[in-house]
């Protein structure tokens, strides 16, 4: 099964064994000339199965036996993420939303509450908020600016839009009893972001990715947020990051 899609302004031809990926990518089709061809094999699916199992074991969770169609979704995005640094683009694990044409990316370890915080922004700001991607957006850093792109790999709630928005700020989020936000230093942000950026398998591509992280922390506002799950958390972070009171 094949399809051609536009992700982060790169035309990608996907040749898959199952149709899940083509259903997922509906809305991203293009007639453009592919610059990247992603072809999945049985081995790619087995690789994802082994990684998923190892991750469950490492996290002390019950091992989930995902079906091949789902595992192929992971394999396809992994191949795209491996190729993207050539085009100054990387996959960042985080919840990204846009307000009035500026994007804000919240990063935190899984289960910390970044999607919950994004939901609080939607409650606070209503339809001013556009969900760019709730889980794994692509971020391009070039010419001193960062642009974030929606993709269909958008987390369990499937919140994303096929948009490109200038990235204004990255916020490193942690849980706290009270809500507070401070500027993060470059020295603090770089290692923290490393934990949320897709790490390519190819060492050369990993080096390109680290350079992109360097550039990213140099061209966006960096924040560190401690927050609870009350609406006030969104008021605090939005006021600081946008410079505006909701």
């Amino acid at each position: 099964m094949t399809g051609t899609y536009l992700f982060a302004n790169i035309v990608v031809r996907v040749e898959s064994l199952h149709d899940n990926v083509h259903r997922l990518c509906h809305g991203y089709e293009t007639n453009g000339q592919p610059r990247l061809t992603v072809r999945t094999t049985r081995e790619d699916i087995d690789f994802e199965h082994a990684r998923s199992k190892a991750a469950d074991i490492a996290a002390g969770r019950n091992v989930v036996d995902y079906n091949d169609g789902y595992l192929e979704l992971l394999a396809v995005y992994r191949k795209i993420a491996e190729a993207m640094p050539v085009w100054n683009t990387m996959l960042v694990h985080g919840s990204c939303l846009a307000v009035d044409g500026a994007a804000y990316l919240f990063c935190a370890p899984s289960g910390t509450g970044k999607s919950t915080h994004a939901r609080l922004w939607r409650e606070l700001l209503g339809n001013r908020v556009v969900m760019v991607n709730d889980d794994k957006p692509l971020v391009r850093v070039a010419d001193g600016t960062a642009m974030v792109f929606g993709t269909p790999w958008d987390g369990k709630h499937h919140l994303s839009s096929n948009v490109a928005v200038p990235l204004r700020a990255v916020c490193l989020l942690g849980r706290d009893e009270s809500n507070h936000i401070e500027r993060a230093s470059l020295d603090d942000a770089f290692p923290s972001l490393l934990g949320h950026v897709y790490r390519p398998i190819d060492p050369t591509v990993l080096l390109q990715t680290l350079t992109l992280v360097d550039r990213l922390v140099g061209c966006v506002d960096l924040w560190r947020l401690g927050c609870n799950m009350d609406l006030d958390a969104a008021r605090v972070s939005f006021a600081a990051m946008s410079g505006e009171r909701a």
């Binding site: 470059l186 020295d187 770089f190 290692p191 490393l194 897709y198 790490r199 390519p200 398998i201 190819d202 060492p203 990993l206 080096l207 680290l210 360097d214």
Partner: peptide, 15 residues
């Protein structure tokens, strides 16, 4: 992979 950051560096494994 090693990567310089400020006055130091980080050692990062590939995927």
């Amino acid at each position: 992979i090693t990567h310089e950051i400020g006055d130091g560096l980080v050692l990062v494994p590939t995927g």
